[in-house]
């Protein structure tokens, strides 16, 4: 019963109406869900395990995709690279890594931004001024530059082998630290508005601790815009990870994301083996475009001024 009620409420809601009346948004959702499923089910669905050296065979190297060329092999639908790795399987595993990094970095940035924004807005004074000036200075630089710099500093602090082992965490941290500003500013603004309202004063009169008031009472009321920013930033985070990996400072070639795959394909591009670079590129572009379209739609659908 509860499920049926919930379904009816969803079906009657404005958001669902706005969702199903836009073909572009429905299409973007289908693409996103398809890519996410294909990526996270890659251990089951992928035809090969491209990063298990035991299954690779050099005689399979540089096969073109099945539609282009006579020596193509149907078990390598999108061709193979110069080491005989199946391009389709590499893409599926790579997309999974790209998604994991993108989602983790966005979540990290969100948590950090919310925490600093809550503190800044609720405490005020010198703490507020310090956090906001820090945000101003960081906002002067593009996020890509900040992430590159953080990555370089970590490399200066630890050895190279060690860096490859923890590359995943370094890149999540670097992207997260370069995207927190927008959340902090939004949350701080909302907190300043909410702080004066009666329910917060009531909570204070009861004698709740500031932390409890912030997390249980103020936070739920500022989450709406935060989630919209998170959706829009997810596409940006995936793109930043791909760019860093393409520049050779992101994920190493032993655990390649889409960006790493594009870099490896780009290294052999001049020999005319276009499929090694084009297919990961198209996957990345489709993923980012679909996520961006969803983010834009969500922003408009949740904005009461635009209804």
């Amino acid at each position: 019963m509860a499920v049926a009620d919930f379904m009816r409420r969803v079906a009657d809601s404005d958001i669902w109406y706005s969702f199903k009346s836009s073909r572009v948004v429905v299409g973007a959702t289908v693409v996103t869900v398809f890519i996410i499923l294909a990526a996270f089910l890659s251990p089951i669905l992928a035809p090969h395990t491209p990063f298990d050296p035991a299954t690779l065979n050099l005689s399979d190297a540089l096969k073109p995709p099945v539609m282009f060329g006579d020596d193509a092999d149907w078990s390598f639908l999108l061709g193979t690279d110069e080491q005989g790795r199946d391009v389709l399987s590499s893409i599926m595993y790579g997309t999974r890594l790209s998604l994991v990094v993108g989602i983790a970095a966005t979540a990290f940035a969100m948590v950090l931004g919310i925490a600093l924004g809550l503190i800044s807005g609720y405490v005020g004074g010198a703490v507020d001024a310090f956090i906001m000036r820090l945000a101003d200075v960081q906002l002067t630089f593009p996020a890509l530059l900040v992430a590159l710099l953080i990555d370089g500093v970590v490399r200066g602090l630890i050895s190279v082998q060690r860096h490859d082992e923890i590359a995943l965490y370094v890149i999540v941290g670097a992207i997260g630290l370069s995207f927190w500003v927008q959340y902090a500013r939004t949350v701080r603004g909302s907190v300043l508005v909410e702080k004066g309202k009666e329910y917060v004063q009531a909570a204070r009169v009861i004698g709740l601790s500031p932390v409890l008031i912030m997390v249980r009472h103020v936070l739920p009321n500022v989450m709406g815009p935060v989630l919209v920013i998170a959706t829009i930033n997810l596409g940006l985070a995936i793109l930043t990870e791909a760019t860093l990996s393409f520049l050779g400072v992101g994920l190493p070639s032993t655990q390649p994301s889409l960006g790493t795959l594009i870099r490896l394909g780009n290294d052999v591009l001049l020999s005319g083996t276009w499929w090694i670079v084009i297919f990961p590129g198209v996957t990345l572009a489709a993923l980012v475009l679909a996520v961006n379209l969803l983010g834009d739609w969500l922003r408009d659908a949740l904005n009461p001024k635009l209804r």
Partner: peptide, 22 residues
């Protein structure tokens, strides 16, 4: 222009190299 905004810079460069250089 919508597609142009979503395409990463390095991918545009690679596509241009593929078409005009290779």
């Amino acid at each position: 222009s919508l597609i142009g905004v979503s395409l990463p810079t390095f991918l545009i460069g690679i596509l241009l190299i593929l078409v005009f250089a290779v």
